[in-house]
């Protein structure tokens, strides 16, 4: 089984988000980057396929050279090879097209993405990629088993879950549940040493398509101070929620 894991290089979850150039650009000053959490769940599931079903794992990221530290981390966790598409990422469509160009050549059985990224968090790359490749697709995926070319996947839906039967080639959008937090792997020294020797190929983009354009960013207006209500004055809270906030 050949697996491709798509890795988005995103600001660490504790990052304070700021913009520069009068709100037109994300300010990466002082920001730590990590593997998108949903992609990390996916990568761990891929490792189980590698260990139990002899799968090979390529990881891929679309972006500048700064994403290579994140790809190296994925190699240290256990991926076999890494690919970086050297392109800017104006929107989700452009990323999906670049990923599809590489995926077509690699004839992968399974492509693992994250349900959504925590930066632009559109949750659109996975479905677009599947549609371009004409592959099957399950997002919000919390369980996946593969037997031959048949896959059984569980998708989280609003208020429950749904079990699906589908065929390879398959694209999934991974999230917590596919593996648990405690299953995630921290790269060890040996992994880090080995990762240095593993191939990281840089490829040039073949297409240049985008359908949307981010014009400017803004931060939510800062809210007024919290109104504190005394613990023995619940009536006041109910009054505020009813008459002032009008939410009950």
């Amino acid at each position: 089984m050949k697996i491709l894991v798509c890795i988005s290089h995103v600001p660490d979850t504790t990052s304070k988000i700021n913009f520069s150039d009068s709100g037109s650009k994300f300010d990466s000053n002082g920001v730590q980057y990590v593997i998108n959490p949903n992609d990390e769940f996916g990568l761990t599931r891929a490792m189980w396929f590698k260990e139990k079903q002899n799968a090979s794992i390529d990881v891929i990221s679309v972006g500048g050279s700064e994403t290579e530290t994140t790809l190296r981390k994925a190699l240290a966790i256990g991926a076999d090879t890494a690919i970086r598409v050297n392109a800017s990422t104006p929107d989700g469509l452009s990323v999906a097209k670049h990923l599809a160009d590489v995926a077509k050549k690699g004839s992968y059985d399974l492509i693992i993405t994250g349900r959504e990224s925590i930066d632009y968090n559109g949750g659109m790359v996975p479905g677009m990629l599947a549609a371009i490749l004409n592959a099957n697709f399950v997002t919000n995926c919390i369980s996946l088993e593969i037997e031959g070319t048949i896959a059984t996947a569980v998708r989280e839906i609003d208020g429950g879950k749904e079990t699906l039967s589908t065929l390879l080639p398959l694209v999934i959008g991974a999230q917590k549940g596919l593996v648990e937090e405690s299953d995630l792997r921290i790269p060890n020294m040996r992994g880090i040493m080995m990762a240095r020797k593993k191939p990281l190929t840089v490829v040039n983009p073949e297409s240049n398509n985008s359908a949307t354009k981010s014009v400017s960013f803004e931060k939510p207006a800062s809210r007024g101070d919290v109104k504190l209500v005394k613990a023995d004055n619940i009536d006041e809270l109910i009054n505020l929620l009813h008459n002032e906030a009008k939410v009950i």
């Binding site: 929107d91 989700g92 469509l93 999906a96 968090n121 559109g122 949750g123 659109m124 790359v125 996975p126 479905g127 677009m128 599947a130 549609a131 371009i132 697709f137 997002t139 919000n140 989280e156 839906i157 609003d158 359908a211 949307t212």
Partner: peptide, 23 residues
């Protein structure tokens, strides 16, 4: 922005050559 709508929209975007903005 339900789970099902977010599942459908990217597929539809490719099918229609349409730009898609979520959220």
């Amino acid at each position: 922005s339900s789970a099902d709508s977010k599942y459908i929209a990217p597929l539809l975007a490719i099918g229609l050559n349409a730009g898609y903005v979520p959220n």
